[in-house]
Nucleic acid binder design. Structure first.
Lengths: 219, 219
DNA sequence: TCACGTTCGTTACAGCATATAACGCTAGTA
DNA sequence: TACTAGCGTTATATGCTGTAACGAACGTGA
């Protein structure tokens, strides 16, 4: 039991859990998070509903899992596009703090923005699950905020700020510029994936590109 | 029955309906749209659940009513702030089309933006009900899109476009500028009301004001 | 090879929600 | 005053979440 190889029991369990999550995503993408139904997933998989509770603690917990999975996916996507695992070691890198933008700040930002939009357009409900309407009382788990920080970190670094966006006052203009990067892109993207542009003679991709240009630092 | 004065029957009905909607709003603001429960409303009002079906066709229909009510409220708010019922008669006004901005375009936009944010901050879930995560399959009733058009119309007019945002190609740069006005403000506002700035040393009001300035036409 | 025990899926059931049907009361109305 | 439209009730069907208890199966270790 102590050897690294997993037995067939654990293997089977992982496969079932993966299928549960996959079908859960199908439901979310198809009809929104509120339509997520354990019973429907179970039926689709040829099981009865209570069987799923062997794999998932409950409906809300499954939804939280999906949120974390989405965060992780997006974080990896953005970090990969920005080039390497930026963010976690901003102070350890040569850049230091308060200084000018990195060698290729504009490139990093452009790649991150493109990756963000590609991801969001590919999975609209996934993007809305992270940045759309939250449940008022809901407290996101600590991992979620950590993921959110990781996603934002490359942007913050590219604008030459110290790593921590929670820092009280010294962040200053770099944080402001990074937040503006975020809000301008999110403004276009969220309205696009929410379908608010339908029937409006608006080209979302063009608007997104224009907003991106508006926040890129001069080379 | 044909006289204008409404009988006590109709009066009572209106009062009950108003209370239903008021309690529905309380639930939505408190726990989100997905938590809206006819049964809970009925119990709060001292009735049984089936009694509510005398007043509301069903849960989804009540939610649609709330959406329309929110649209109407926001439309009135923005129009009042922009000054008079702009939009409905843009071609009838002296401005015509394709021309320069109105006499006080910047003022109109500034007032509309301020009214928008005040309204959204006052009723976060109401704003998110209109511009947050939509249900994928849901087709908004025609009245909703009409309200959305009315809300957008003063902005479009201030940037000197012809009235119809659905017009295919001739809208051009005026529509682009109006959409940018919308996306930049919405970018800040939606992240703010969704609580994405919490713990982040970001001043939403300041960011909103800065974004507003960035899209105001030069005087 | 075999007995054991963990793991899994089942049925049964409690609770809560939406929604419909049918009944009876009450209060405007003619 | 008799009538009836409108309203709220109980009863019921349906579908979901979640728990409890049972039984089967399969990997594990002797």
């Amino acid at each position: 039991m102590l050897d690294g190889a997993e037995g067939p029991r654990a293997r089977y369990r992982r496969q079932v859990l993966a299928e549960v999550r996959e079908r859960a995503w199908q439901q979310v993408e198809l009809a929104g998070a509120s339509a997520l139904s354990l019973k429907a997933i179970a039926t689709d998989m040829g099981m009865t509903a209570p069987a799923l509770y062997r794999y998932v603690a409950g409906r809300d917990e499954l939804l939280t899992d999906l949120v974390l999975e989405a965060y992780g996916d997006l974080a990896e996507t953005v970090e990969a596009a920005a080039g390497g695992s930026t963010g976690a070691d901003a102070s350890a890198s040569g850049r230091g703090r308060g200084g000018g933008d990195g060698p290729d700040a504009a490139g990093v930002l452009r790649r991150a923005a493109t990756a963000l939009r590609d991801w969001a357009v590919r999975h609209p409900q996934r993007y809305l699950l992270l940045y759309g309407t939250p449940v008022p009382g809901y407290r996101a788990p600590a991992e979620a905020t950590e993921f959110a920080r990781r996603i934002f970190a490359p942007v913050l670094a590219a604008y030459g700020s110290s790593a921590d966006p929670a820092g009280p006052a010294d962040a200053g203009p770099a944080l402001d510029r990074a937040v503006t990067f975020w809000t301008r892109l999110h403004g276009v993207l969220s309205l696009e994936v929410a379908g608010q542009f339908t029937g409006m003679a608006v080209d979302p991709a063009a608007r997104y590109a224009a907003e991106l240009d508006s926040v890129l630092p001069a080379d």
